[in-house]
């Protein structure tokens, strides 16, 4: 765990490496300045952390690195608002603050012994990546069945984690990756088309399989229709929800959907839960 004594106090951290993903998305590899904090940090795949840019503010992001990676944390962040603009202006060696981890994370114990299909769109692959890498890690690989990843983005430039998606993951045993982009490009030899359509085309069988989704709401909406056709059960479909957060610890009152706080009871919900939530997200 991170800061237990004062849950609102960020802990100093340093950007060790900036890995460009797309024209406006970078992955930031960070370490806590206090080695003891780094050594004691534990998070689950799919959990969140509050990133502090001093002079700009705080914003919540999913941790995109696998918890099996104990030397650093990675966050994959698009330049969009005040905080992310300030972050993108930093260079390696830059100082930020981190507090967390927050949220429930993916219930990977429930996925043990099963095949898992990941469906991601654009930067939505970031939280999924933490779980994919976690499952592909040698110490966990035997616990899970086949891993399938269907990933799409608007253009080839908008694909995140290109090395993993295009090179590394497809080479791993019992792991299949399908990649698509929305519109044709001269240099792109892969599939062209929207994620939900590609899902239907690939047609992975849903029986006994877990599906984990993250992407823009419109993609999620149509992917859910496709998953149902493929025989995926609601309780086996997981997605992450995103709401504005200020505290991350269930007190500031912003991220509630009904009586649930996304920062505490989320961001991961199964489809049964999502259908029970009032439609206010």
């Amino acid at each position: 765990m991170g800061n237990v004594e004062n849950c609102l106090l960020p802990l100093p951290a340093t950007i060790q490496k900036i890995i460009p993903e797309t024209s406006d998305v970078n992955t930031y590899r960070v370490t806590f300045d206090d080695p003891e904090v780094m050594a004691n940090w534990r998070n689950k795949p799919g959990q969140l952390a509050m990133i502090s840019l001093f002079g700009a503010g705080e914003a919540m992001f999913s941790i995109s690195s696998s918890p099996t990676q104990r030397d650093y944390l990675e966050f994959t962040i698009r330049k969009a608002g005040v905080v992310t603009k300030a972050l993108h202006s930093l260079e390696e060696g830059g100082k930020i603050g981190i507090r967390g981890p927050y949220g429930n994370g993916f219930p990977f114990d429930l996925m043990k012994g099963r095949d898992v299909l990941f469906v991601g769109g654009g930067i939505g692959l970031a939280p999924l990546r933490s779980l994919i890498e976690f499952m592909l890690d040698d110490q966990n690989r035997a616990d899970f069945g086949k891993i399938e990843v269907l990933y799409g983005a608007r253009s080839s430039d908008d694909l995140c984690f290109k090395q993993a998606v295009l090179e590394d993951w497809p080479k791993r045993p019992n792991c299949e990756v399908w990649t698509t982009i929305d519109r044709a490009e001269d240099a792109w030899k892969g599939h062209v088309g929207f994620v939900p359509a590609y899902l239907e085309e690939v047609g992975p069988k849903g029986e006994g399989k877990v599906a984990v989704l993250c992407g823009p709401p419109i993609m999620i909406k149509f992917v859910l229709v496709g998953l149902e056709k493929l025989g995926f059960k609601d309780e086996m479909i997981y997605s992450t929800l995103e709401l504005r957060m200020k505290c991350g610890v269930g007190k500031c009152g912003r991220c509630n959907i009904g009586h649930k706080f996304v920062c505490l009871e989320g961001p991961v919900f199964d489809l049964v839960q999502i259908k029970e939530l009032p439609p206010e997200f």
């Binding site: 503010g57 200020k246 505290c247």
Partner: peptide, 8 residues
């Protein structure tokens, strides 16, 4: 009521 913001 306890809602709050955290500002810079």
């Amino acid at each position: 009521c306890h809602c709050f913001d955290i500002i810079e």
